[in-house]
Structures are given as structure tokens and as C-alpha cells.
Design a protein around this nucleic acid. Structure first.
Lengths: 123, 123
DNA sequence: ACTTTATTTCTATTATTCTGGACATATGGA
DNA sequence: TCCATATGTCCAGAATAATAGAAATAAAGT
């Protein structure tokens, strides 16, 4: 739960969510801090603060390459966050996760999506 | 994105995440505010602050029943949040969502889960 | 060794969020 | 109408988070 809390915290701030979505675009190769700063118009020191925050939460990864530091989205972690949400924050009759080793993927089923179940009292 | 931000914000605080998980247990029928307060050991006014926060984010629903106010997890909203994460915060080669109208559910596939792709530099 | 570029750390200030006491409102029963 | 119960609102203090200027580090070229 600690992990989930800090992940949600990392995603709950506008600049950080934008950074994460930006990193997702770039995929596993990642992008240097300077490019993020420039493209999103966030001062380099402010950005550094947020990148550290996101790194500590596990949401992003970094590596040095020359004088640049390359940041990338941590897809594994993000997918595990989604899995946590399904397993610990949903119900068996609403959602289920199972592994398909042949396709090498997790399959999540979210039930009753097409005809939403009204939870309000009827008018 | 505004919705996602406030949803993550609602889930990023320990008391609120606990409340949400507690509400999930009780399912769509929900549970009165007093019971949450008592079971989680949170003073009623502090709890009220967090419940308002979560309601405004759309994460939970409420209805009056006698003198109690019954809160319940908003499963529809939560599932849409998960869908947003997949569609807007992941990549087509990492995850995909499709509808299955026969089974009346959404199916999400998360790829490369069994043999995680290392994004760190090799030691 | 010096300079430039890329990024982080330090620091102080400002802004936001959390908390719980005291008070207010709403409902149902005597 | 008065009382008890259930919950929400107001408020002020405490805690935490965000911002950006200035200084520090790290790498690469000259």
C-alpha cells in the first residue's frame, strides 16, 4: 500500500502527470531532463524536484548518458500499480486479473461496463 | 486529465486510501459515515473532510438514509480511471483495451508481464 | 587547467493540505 | 417541542509541498 500511496501522490500533481505522459510518449528509451524542462516549460530546478519525487515513488527510471540524465517511464511499475488497483481496490464481481503465459500478458476483465450499474437511488 | 488528477489526489492520502478500500469491501450498498469513522478510528469531522474530498473527486457516492449518510465506492468511476491510465498513460505496445459486448465487459491486455523488460543499465 | 553545458542541491519563501475543537444542521423519536 | 443521534461546517494552528534564485557538482571539449 505504501508503494501505491506514493505512486498516486506522484501522479496527483499537474506538472508530474504531464511529465509522466510526456515520458510515456518517448517509451523505454527515455528523454533527457533538459528536453522535458524545455518542452513543458518548467524551470530546470523545479523539474528536478518533481523528477526526484517521481523517481523515489518508482514511477520513472533514470540513467546518465554523457552529461545528460535520461528519464524514462517505468512501465513495469505502472502496470503493477494498475494490477494493485484491480486486486486490492476493486471487487471480484467488478474486475479480475489472470495471466496468459502463451501470449505473455496479463488479462484484466472489467465487468458491467457497457450498461453501467446505477448506484444512485432511482429518481 | 483534470478528473484523473483529482482522483489520484484523492487516493494519495493514507486515510483516504484506507477509506476507499474499506468502502470497496462493502460494495455498492455502502456504509454509514459513522461506521467508517468508528472502524478506522478517524474523528468524525476529520473523516467528513476526507469524504467531501473524495466525493468531489468522484471516487465515492453518497445518499441519505434516515439520519445516516451512506457512502459507497463509485466503481464505474474507478474503472474509468483505470481505463484512462491504460489509454492515456501507457503505450499501445504495453497495453490495450477492447470491449466485449457479449460478455458485457472491457478486456485489458498488459503485455510482457511475465518476463519484465529491464530498463536499467546492465551492471 | 579552464570553460561550457547539463543537472542537481541548498535555501527561503509562499501556498496548500490536514487536523480536531467548537458550533451548526438534519432527522427521528418521546 | 424537546432531546438524542448522525453528520457536516467553521476556524485556526500545524504540517507538508511547491517554487525558483543562487551555488554546487559532473562531464566533455579546448
Amino acid at each position: 500500500m505504501k508503494n501505491a500511496l506514493s505512486a498516486f501522490d506522484a501522479l496527483s500533481q499537474e506538472t508530474r502527470l504531464k511529465v509522466f505522459r510526456f515520458l510515456v510518449e518517448y517509451g523505454p528509451e527515455g528523454v533527457p531532463a533538459g528536453t522535458i524542462s524545455e518542452r513543458l516549460g518548467v524551470p530546470h530546478n523545479t523539474l528536478s524536484f518533481h523528477l526526484t519525487h517521481m523517481s523515489q515513488a518508482g514511477l520513472i527510471l533514470s540513467r546518465r548518458e554523457g552529461r545528460s540524465i535520461i528519464y524514462s517511464a517505468n512501465f513495469e511499475f505502472f502496470i503493477e500499480l494498475i494490477q494493485y488497483m484491480i486486486k486490492d481496490c476493486c471487487r471480484a464481481d467488478m474486475a479480475s486479473v489472470h495471466l496468459n503465459t502463451e501470449k505473455n500478458c496479463r488479462i484484466i476483465e472489467l465487468f458491467n461496463c457497457c450498461q453501467p450499474v446505477s448506484q444512485e437511488n432511482a429518481p
